[in-house]
């Protein structure tokens, strides 16, 4: 079995990427990461610690265009014979995973919160977190989009190889005009435990 993990490395490697690679490793088989953009090889190689056997990087794709990313990931999946593709369930995954599902004819599990169980189903939140659903994929290939913070990243290996890859992503149909980022704030999805610890301590000091 071969598992492909898409990692958005445009702003470095975050905890959610390590979680997705750890999850893929726990699924079993070889784990290949596909990413794009300009992240340096040494940073990408660190994904090996979490279970990646190798990282493929398409340096020619520098945007968040979901059509380009879909083509790139589909090419990588074909290249490594992946039967499962794993995403972290972030904004990129919400745009790309459904497209990839149609392109690969692979059933998509959005927002998985656990590993597949013995009966082959995977647990997800439904009804805005008021219940859980057990989803079964009816196709030979599947895509799992893992809800961040559902599992803990486990660093048990060592750095892996990083290879340049041509994902035949084609041209982009989406032109980025500008990007607005709040200054001096930690984006909530990116915040790490340490930041939360400090935030909780500071809030408590203020209240006291």
């Amino acid at each position: 079995m071969s598992v492909l993990v898409y990692v958005n490395s445009s702003t470095g490697i975050h905890k959610s990427a390590n979680e997705a690679v750890t999850y893929a490793k726990k699924l079993g088989g070889s784990v290949t990461v596909i990413t794009n953009g300009g992240c340096d090889a040494a940073t990408l190689a660190s994904l090996g610690k979490y279970g990646a056997d190798k990282v493929l990087v398409d340096r020619s794709v520098n945007s968040n265009d979901d059509q380009q990313l879909t083509r790139m990931i589909a090419t990588a999946a074909d290249s490594v014979g992946a039967t499962t593709v794993v995403f972290s369930h972030d904004l990129t995954a919400k745009a790309v995973a459904p497209r990839l599902s149609v392109r690969m004819k692979a059933g998509l599990i959005s927002g998985a919160i656990d590993l597949p169980s013995g009966d082959g189903t995977t647990k997800v939140n439904v009804f805005s977190g008021k219940a859980f659903g057990a989803v079964k994929v009816n196709t030979s290939k599947k895509i799992i989009s893992l809800l961040p913070n559902s599992i803990q990243p486990e660093a048990t290996g060592s750095d892996c190889a990083v290879e340049d890859f041509n994902g035949n992503a084609g041209s982009t149909n989406v032109k980025v005009i500008t990007t607005k980022k709040p200054e001096g704030e930690i984006p909530l999805p990116e915040a790490e435990r340490k930041n939360y610890r400090n935030a909780v301590k500071n809030m408590t000091k203020l209240e006291m």
């Binding site: 979901d66 919400k94 497209r99 998509l108 439904v126 989406v174």
Partner: peptide
């Protein structure tokens, strides 16, 4: 962006791929 019962965020992207059209999510 999603339905409040299944919260999948899947249908829009799937339609876009089936139509081979750009998709802007969220």
């Amino acid at each position: 962006k999603e339905t409040i019962n299944y919260n999948g965020s899947q249908v829009g992207g799937m339609i876009a791929e089936a139509l081979d059209a750009p998709f802007i999510s969220v």
